[in-house]
Nucleic acid binder design. Structure first.
Lengths: 344, 344
DNA sequence: TCAGCTTTCCAAAGCGCTTCGAACGACGCC
DNA sequence: GGCGTCGTTCGAAGCGCTTTGGAAAGCTGA
């Protein structure tokens, strides 16, 4: 059933039917109701492509999923982010189109999106320090919103980020307050902007208390369980091991826990661990008392909000870019405790 | 730059340019080269919607992500499946469109996909026993391919599945061979087809050895870490606890391990655990020796293959539906060992 | 009654592409 | 020389929708 047929069965012109369906005022309430009624009966939906062609809008938003070629790793945080964004899109009638792409080929995908006019805007994931994609998108004129920020980029753009620096500063302070002095940072890849900021927050807190930062206690890699395990196992084997770990994600945290337990140590007594928790739906950090003490910020929520911000930007192209900086909650769980006395 | 402009700059008709770009034979090699050259220089890409409108194809494939309303849970396996499928789509010039939807509203999404002609086919995720979506898609005439199968559905359709029954039968046999007699099954939700088949394989193996199946050792729920923990903790507290666990996924397995270790038991010595491992990129089951003994089958690979199968079906609508049954590998890791003697 | 509004509806153009049917030379053949 | 054939190119219709610019009908007030 297309518009023409629908108009015929109604005995009206396409114009009137189209207007009735799209809420234009120049059609009487009576005919509008009649049109809506019959359209519903026939489960009529306007053809997306025809509508898009006529309006010049695609009512779709693109997400480019970069795939780390190194480990063929897909960021597990995506699933939840996209679930959140998807809710917002559904509410506003947008489709979500995904493009999985090898790490370097993103630029071409954005150019294609624009040239083929297949999306009205894109969400930029995993921004790096001084991310080249931001000027690129500005240049090709594709509206975008960034999940995170890109330090080093001057100029306004729409973004939503967790305050990673303050979160990790607070987490470090928390461990320092418990008496820990040898604190390890098991970070993500530090060319990623969020990891860079986390490290800054960590360093800041140590410096404020004049606690030296030991390079032997810094790790940075892709956030897998195996990485957490190896990093923690290595550092626990040091002659002067850390008493606490600050860990980039719950997945890495699971690896750290494995190493701790394999070393015969007890989490929350011998070794304290604070993670950053994205509140992933399938890896909840405990239901009652959190397993891990954590800086917490829902990535699904971030998806929802950032999608709204992008839609807003698309519908009001003139407005100044909006930004949102979310503070993470610091939730105390069972993985932290006072620093053990120096008897080990 | 659109076709009209491109044709003008070339001094050719749109027809000729279009034909040159789409590889039709009735254009001389000389002009074709010239057209390709100039098109490349201007980074020309045909407008997706216009092309789709003209051809009647959308060159897009839909994925509906059902979101369990109960726990707002998003299946973590998606990320990897989609990465695999995305590769195939990219290779064949298809876009991937995602729709996140609450558990019950899927039917409407499929109807919309068809009515709006926004996709050429869909991938069906997480089939249930006797899944109503299969007849629905048949009825509305939208090509589809199922990741998994739906027992109870007669009639041919395109699917790709892991042989869950044989995988779990073999895993159970493996544990039985090690002397285990009290084996617990920490399964997924059993109205899901895969979980149902796994349970069947498990029961089959026990029956073949005349080992009674104790209902107290059966659990079934959404596959989260917390579920694994609670299920294992509960069962370990029984007066007659299991010596081995057969676990639905690595995430659930992590929870089981937590419970085992919290009970002061050692994995692979006191308690054996076999998981099903989807080879998730961010939760690798060890790099060298697997942490968990596992039945293993890459879900990313499944995504890649099933996407190819669907594209094949879309391009050859006449052909009989293809199916693929993958055997999981049984990989021995460090989480299993001989059943402990009855001294505990 | 009639000009002047409103209200309600419509015909047709246009979005950017594909594709059918036809035109136009050039060529070979009888 | 006329005719069919082949290779190459083009004009124009059509995909399903929105939207502009009217037009017809109904109403108002002088």
């Amino acid at each position: 059933m297309n518009l023409k047929e629908l108009a015929q069965t109604l005995g009206l012109s396409q114009t009137t039917v189209s207007r009735a369906l799209n809420g234009y005022p120049e059609v009487s309430e009576a005919t509008r109701q009649r049109v809506l009624q019959v359209a519903r009966e026939h489960n009529y939906r306007p053809n997306t492509r025809a509508k898009g062609l006529a309006t010049g809008l695609s009512m779709a938003i693109g997400h480019v999923i970069p795939m780390a070629t190194k480990h063929e790793m897909v960021n597990p945080v995506f699933a939840d982010f996209i679930a959140g964004a998807g809710e917002a899109y559904a509410r506003h009638g947008y489709d979500m189109v995904l493009s999985v792409v090898e790490d370097g080929d993103e630029a071409q995908v954005y150019r294609d999106f624009k040239a083929r006019a297949s999306v009205d805007g894109v969400i930029l994931h995993g921004p790096r320090m001084d991310d080249p994609r931001i000027p690129l998108l500005d240049e090709i004129g594709l509206p975008f919103a960034v999940h995170g920020r890109a330090s080093g980029h001057t100029g306004a753009y729409t973004w939503l980020d967790v305050n990673n620096r303050s979160a990790f500063r607070r987490a470090t302070d928390f461990l320092l307050d418990l008496g820990h002095r040898r604190i390890a940072l098991v970070n993500g890849l530090e060319f990623m902007d969020f990891a860079h900021r986390r490290r800054a927050g960590f360093a800041e807190a140590l410096a404020a208390r004049k606690v030296p930062l030991d390079p032997a206690l810094l790790r940075s890699d892709e956030m897998t369980e195996g990485y957490g395990y190896r990093a923690a196992a290595d550092m626990l084997a040091l002659s002067n091991p850390p008493t606490a770990f600050l860990v980039a994600s719950i997945i890495v945290g699971l690896g750290v826990r494995r190493a701790v337990e394999e070393a015969g140590l007890v989490l929350g007594r011998d070794i304290s661990v604070v993670i950053h928790d994205d509140a992933l739906s399938y890896l909840q950090n405990g239901t009652d008392v959190p397993i891990f003490t954590a800086t917490r910020s829902s990535v699904r929520d971030a998806g929802r909000r950032l999608a709204e911000m992008l839609i807003d930007k698309i519908t009001n192209p003139g407005a100044a870019p909006k930004t949102a900086l979310l503070e993470a909650e610091l939730m105390v769980g069972r993985s932290t405790g006072p620093a053990p006395q120096r008897t080990r």
